[in-house]
Nucleic acid binder design. Structure first.
Lengths: 212, 212
DNA sequence: ACCTGAACACCGTTCAAGT
DNA sequence: ACCTGAACACCGTTCAAGT
């Protein structure tokens, strides 16, 4: 009786027990972020992710070599988002001093809106600088957005003609410090608006500090 | 036969198996720091500390409520050291702009010389701000050193008359950012001297940024 | 290919018991 | 008081086995 042949592939007949996710890798990354958001980086467990996704504990080793690799992927994604969001505030047709301040606010805003990403990116969970090439590339990309913006402002005469790398490291250190202290609650700010206001103040101090 | 009574207390006859340390609390703190230095905060295990000290796994619960309490104690000690070292560079008889730059270098220098302490203090291992009173007090003390220095420079006319708390948060964010990026190796500096040189550059940018 | 279940070697913490 | 040894409930990772 050949009439029993189904139109769909046979495996669709067991939807609840096999191939739970079309994109398990994506689901693992998102569940990891939610878990970090709820319990902190230290509270992230692969077993917990598996349980939440209804997947065996070993399933995720098909998508990531180990827990460290999963965190690396989270960090790389974060650097990519950070680069896109900061670069958008300083487009080619608006490379102004005001736009540079917006970039600082966007940087800290990213950390506030994506604290889990930011903590993985800079929390020291990743083994010191033995990162994957993808992660190194994304990190360098974020930094280059800042360097390019400073070079542009230098050519306009708004920023002193110091080594752009030194200038960029100074600016980066400052906004990174604000971001870290803010998401750790050590800035003693009452709400997001207060952090943003302080970030604007910081941007103004940076502007004065690097002015030509 | 009463002649067998020893001069020393009886327990000294079993030196290798009991009361190993005159100050086990101190030994636990130092071993924790060494372990963090070797393996990172994530690599710190209470079992490892016990094994290294030749002490049972439960022994340290006589001195610390749990692992978190031990880390709190490490952080509190770090804040105390940081306060002492930074305050020493800005004494009552030398409250100058130059001394303020030295304070920034001392701050980053502390992080470079005591990265394990610094990582526990700011690495996010401690649950957000539900710290012990001792820790909160030490942290506030470190911050007050900075506020007082800025008030002194304001009264001398060297620093703009903004809210000292905002000024202090700006300066703190910057040196904290430098310290964190430096000990995480993300500043791309070749050695300690290069970090110190960059910190001096940063101190100069801060000075320009907050000048009256 | 992708997933499972059981196993291994860890971990923090607790607790009755020893001195 | 201070410490021990065993136990409990976790954890990351591996691997033979299933489909």
């Amino acid at each position: 009786m050949p009439r029993s042949r189904p139109l769909a592939p046979a495996r669709t007949r067991k939807p609840a027990s096999r191939y739970h996710h079309g994109d398990l890798r994506r689901a693992l990354l998102e569940e990891a972020l939610q878990m970090i958001h709820r319990e902190g980086v230290a509270g992230l467990t692969l077993r917990g992710i598996g349980a939440r996704l209804g997947v065996s504990r070993a399933a995720l080793y098909r998508h990531f070599a180990d827990k460290h690799a999963l965190l690396m992927a989270v960090a790389a994604e974060g650097f990519r988002m950070l680069r896109v969001e900061t670069a958008a505030t300083f487009p080619a047709d608006r490379q102004t001093v005001s736009a540079f301040a917006d970039m600082a606010v966007a940087y800290v805003g990213f950390a506030l809106r994506h604290p889990s990403h930011y903590r993985v990116m800079f929390g020291g969970s990743l083994d010191d600088a033995q990162a994957t090439p993808e992660l190194a590339e994304e990190g360098a990309g974020s930094f280059n957005v800042l360097v390019n913006a400073l070079v542009a402002l230098q050519s306009q005469g708004h920023v002193r003609k110091d080594n752009p790398l030194d200038l960029a490291r100074f600016v980066w250190s400052t906004v990174h410090g604000v971001a870290m202290l803010a998401i750790d609650g050590q800035l003693m700010c009452k709400g997001v608006e207060e952090v943003v206001a302080f970030t604007r103040y910081t941007a103004e101090r940076i502007r004065t500090g690097i002015a030509a």
